[in-house]
Amino acid sequence: MVDIKIIVCIKQVPGTTEIKINPETNTLVREGIETVINPFDTYAIEEGVRLKEKLAPLLSQTGEEIETIALTMGPPQSGEMLKEAIALGIDKAVLLSDRAFAGADTWATALTLAEAIKKFDDWKLIILGKQTLDGDTGQVGPELAQKLNIPFIGYASSILDINKNRMTIKRLMEDRYETFEIRLPAAISVGKDINIPRVPSLRGKLKAKNEAIPVWDKNYLNLDQSQIGLEGSYTQVIKISMPEHHYEVKMLEGSPDHQVDELYGKLKELNIV
């Protein structure tokens, strides 16, 4: 019997943002691009693993157990990414995969994740990366928290204290840090200042290799087509394009003194100095 579960929501994203658009179909060309765990999600994984390492000895004194679970919604090949999470120390993983999930916006994604999370008991904390590299919205976390009716702390920069029932957590806002105490269960999103993710371990990799990742589809989650994927989304992308950047580069030549004189002149023209 596991008494506390930490759920880490992760996403597979293209390893580069140098994306091309097929001019004929006006769709993104994604073939041939290596996929990786969304960089911010690696901090979420690490934080989950660290919390387990920290809490497990304390909980074992009272005979309690803690478990970390990685969750993703994505195509079948996202299972490989979940294995990477296991290699990094996550205990088990679940893949939410169904043709019907495709095209989900943040709303439909949050709904699907929420329904999956409800399948677990005793989850206390949900950790997400603060945003994805591709979509870049940062919305799934707060939307998910709202659907589960739990507090959400975004941009968490450190967990100062945590026990089974509550946590003290610091978040980074534009110009300040705020420290909150909140009751668990709760959801948080993390940035790169929270930790330095570890390198996978050999035992983790060997465990991951043999791990069978369960796949949950829409029927298992009792979701209707109208709630999920493109149909369940309230927003729809109607156009994609490449931004037009016009850069007129002027190299300032000559001796350093001359370069600086010229630069100073430009700054003066623009009323910056």
Binding site: V199, P200, S201, R203, G204
Partner: peptide, 9 residues
């Protein structure tokens, strides 16, 4: 980090 990665093992 090398230790955590099991390399001393």
């Amino acid at each position: 980090e090398i230790g955590k990665s099991d390399l001393f093992r």
